[in-house]
């Protein structure tokens, strides 16, 4: 798998392991079923993430959200947009850790994913190689503006209009 954030491809500091095997690893992602066990044996400074399905109700994730460092939401296919809504709900519930989208997304969804609260995308290697890093970064650049307020994305057109009306005064 290939990890990507807004600066491009980068090494993944997290390893996927069951809770019983996390000792000695600085950053791990455990299955959802292992989250309690993982938190119990967590070492000082050890970072723990969890894998969740995009069908998990946001309320069920908020129970442990403030104790984990990363939540990885699965995208079974790029056309399944449920992960965008789940990310949005987790951010609204106050999750401040790393949000990761995992699956065969396409570069043309990168700006959308970031706007919904994701920090990074974990792609199958073959997909990452075929699509190329440049296409992902280009998508962020070409969505420099947006109409929706309250999403984390570029310049908001409504705010820009307001500034233009008031001559830039805030």
């Amino acid at each position: 798998m290939t990890l990507l954030d807004r600066h491009g491809f980068r090494p993944d500091p997290f390893r996927r392991l069951p809770a019983a095997e996390i000792a000695g690893h600085p950053a791990v992602i455990v299955p959802l079923a292992d989250v309690q066990a993982g938190l119990l044996v967590r070492a000082l400074g050890q970072r723990i993430g969890i894998d969740i399905a995009n069908t998990l109700p946001a309320e069920d994730a908020t129970a442990f959200a403030n104790q984990v460092d990363l939540i990885a939401i699965a995208f079974p296919g790029f056309a399944d947009g449920r992960g965008f809504t789940l990310a949005r709900r987790l951010r609204r519930a106050g999750f401040r850790g790393i949000l990761r989208a995992v699956g065969p997304l396409i570069p043309d969804q990168f700006a959308y994913a970031m706007a919904c609260g994701f920090d990074e995308v974990e792609l199958p290697d073959a997909v990452a190689t075929r699509q190329g890093e440049a296409a992902w970064l280009a998508d962020l650049a070409i969505y420099s503006t947006s109409y929706q307020r309250d999403y984390a994305r570029g310049q908001n057109i409504l705010e820009a209009r307001r500034e233009a009306r008031t001559g830039g005064a805030t």
Binding site: A79, F84, A115, C116, R153
Partner: peptide
Amino acid sequence: RQWSTAHPEFSFL
């Protein structure tokens, strides 16, 4: 129209 254009959350319904 403006609000729904390239909506980050609702483009893969």
